[in-house]
């Protein structure tokens, strides 16, 4: 286990050390201490390393992550795991706005609540939130899955494309072109799998979730739908 004191050595030294691991296949373990809300911690990592951040992080922690497992033993600021490609990011606390924005792959787990715009414009990532998700979550979400054990805020899935949204609690309101859809066997299987991967299988059961997806009415412009825009 490598321990890196971010307060003493600085962000640039941390990220360049982590970037230097590209291409290696050994699962090495890293621990980052004194993060003190710094931005861009472990951004752009491209190696199957296990990084534990002991404390809360600022903006864009684990941004564009590839392969790495990043655990935050605290809360995460805006844009955690933005544009993640692969790997796993686990936040023990809450996550601020835009968690997992534009993520293309991998798994983001938030054990607390996620703020507004969780999964905005997501493109393949899976997101499991143990608590609630804020307003405008999954705005323009293209693909991937959100599994939310709590409630969803206003305008869930506005202008949604093909992402699947599974919510266990209440949904304050649905955004333009987002509708409730039937849970079929394949959907129960997805939720079951993600609950397990997201360390939430003891907290909820797949049958408790409802599914939301795109009505696909805004896919091609039609003047009669203009009021939905």
């Amino acid at each position: 286990m490598q321990t890196f004191d971010l307060g003493a050595e600085g962000l640039r030294a941390l990220n360049s050390a982590l970037h230097a691991l590209k291409g290696q296949t050994n699962m090495t373990e890293w621990e980052v201490i004194n993060p003190k809300g710094a931005h861009a911690i472990a951004a752009g990592v491209d190696a199957p390393v296990d990084i534990t951040v002991r404390g809360s992080t600022g903006y864009y922690c684990a941004g564009m992550n590839k392969l790495a497992t990043v655990r935050v033993k605290g809360s995460a600021g805006p844009g955690v795991a933005e544009n993640m490609m692969s790997g796993t990011v686990i936040i023990d606390g809450d996550a601020s706005q835009y968690a997992g924005a534009t993520g293309r792959g991998g798994l983001l787990v938030i054990k607390g609540n996620a703020s507004s715009r969780c999964g905005i414009s997501m493109k393949g990532i899976n997101i499991v939130v143990h608590g609630n998700i804020g307003h405008m979550s999954a705005f323009m979400a293209q693909s991937g899955n959100i599994v939310c054990l709590g409630d969803a805020g206003e305008a869930l899935g506005d202008s949604l494309y093909e992402a699947r949204l599974f919510v266990r609690g209440t949904v304050k309101s649905l955004g333009a072109d987002c509708i409730e859809k039937e849970m079929r066997p394949e959907h129960y299987a997805i939720v079951e799998d993600l609950l397990r991967q997201g360390e939430a299988d003891t907290k909820a059961k797949p049958e408790e979730f409802r599914r939301y997806g795109s009505a696909r009415k805004l896919y091609t412009f039609n003047i009669d739908n203009a009021s939905s825009y």
């Binding site: 962000l11 640039r12 990220n15 931005h39 861009a40 951004a43 752009g44 600022g58 903006y59 864009y60 941004g63 564009m64 805006p78 844009g79 933005e82 706005q97 835009y98 924005a101 534009t102 715009r117 905005i120 414009s121 705005f139 323009m140 202008s159 896919y219 091609t220 412009f221």
Partner: peptide, 28 residues
Amino acid sequence: IDQRSACRHPDWTGPDDLEIKIMEIREI
């Protein structure tokens, strides 16, 4: 299907966020 690209960035708004976003891209 018709594609509408958003007019705002999904993960930052305003000049203070932009500064952090640029820093993140530089770090990456």
